[in-house]
């Protein structure tokens, strides 16, 4: 039951992009086509879950026992950066086809604040490891959902007769605003 609440709240109610404003850069950057949006979602899911597990272990088995929680930010970001590198190297060796699909998105992920954000949130919300993993997966799905819907909308607005001054980024942001309004309808359901 608790897992279901975590999942619904992370995907719909407190959507990571539209409500928490994490991962807005890739949300605006790679949402011009549905295909790239799907690729980015895959890469984010993969890294987010891995990063959450590793940072959780670091927090509970290194930082807390040695009472050096103030090194949290610095150690988490280093772990995420090296994790992204590692994933890239391993993918290249193990599964070249997957690497081809996700490869271009991987370097972008280090500076995706959604990854570090979720890692820190899992610690702040005092989840256990299992809840943390569920939370990470749910947030990745929420990110993917928002990104893919938004990419679909943008493919359409590109073909419309948008007022000249609003072309490009402004209309995309306003579309995102209306999408966020739609997601607000879910608030209060958990």
């Amino acid at each position: 039951m608790e897992y279901i609440i975590i999942i619904i709240s992370a995907i719909l109610v407190n959507n990571i992009v539209l409500n928490q404003f994490l991962g807005v850069c890739p949300f605006l950057g790679v949402s011009k086509k549905i295909e790239t949006a799907v690729g980015m979602t895959g890469a984010v899911t993969f890294v987010m879950v891995l990063a959450t597990i590793v940072t959780f272990l670091i927090q509970h088995y290194i930082l807390i026992p040695f009472e050096i929680q103030y090194l949290q930010t610095i150690s988490f970001i280093l772990v995420i950066a090296s994790l992204v590198q590692l994933v890239e190297i391993i993918l290249k060796k193990v599964s070249p086809s997957l690497h081809q699909a996700l490869g271009v998105f991987l370097p972008l992920i280090t500076t995706n604040c959604a990854i570090l954000g979720v890692a820190i949130l899992v610690i702040q919300k005092e989840f256990n490891l299992m809840e943390g993993v569920v939370y990470a997966i749910a947030n990745a799905i929420g990110f993917g959902l928002a990104l893919i819907i938004f990419a679909g909308l943008r493919e359409h607005t590109d073909l419309q007769d948008v007022p000249k001054g609003l072309k490009g980024v402004p209309i995309a942001l306003i579309t995102a605003g209306i999408l966020a309004m739609a997601f607000m309808g879910f608030s209060g359901i958990v």
Binding site: L18, N19, F21, L166, V169, P170, I171, A172, L173, I174, A176, G177, I178, A180, M181, M184
Partner: peptide
Amino acid sequence: APGAFIALGY
């Protein structure tokens, strides 16, 4: 949240 996107757009 939605107002942030819309205001920034304009």
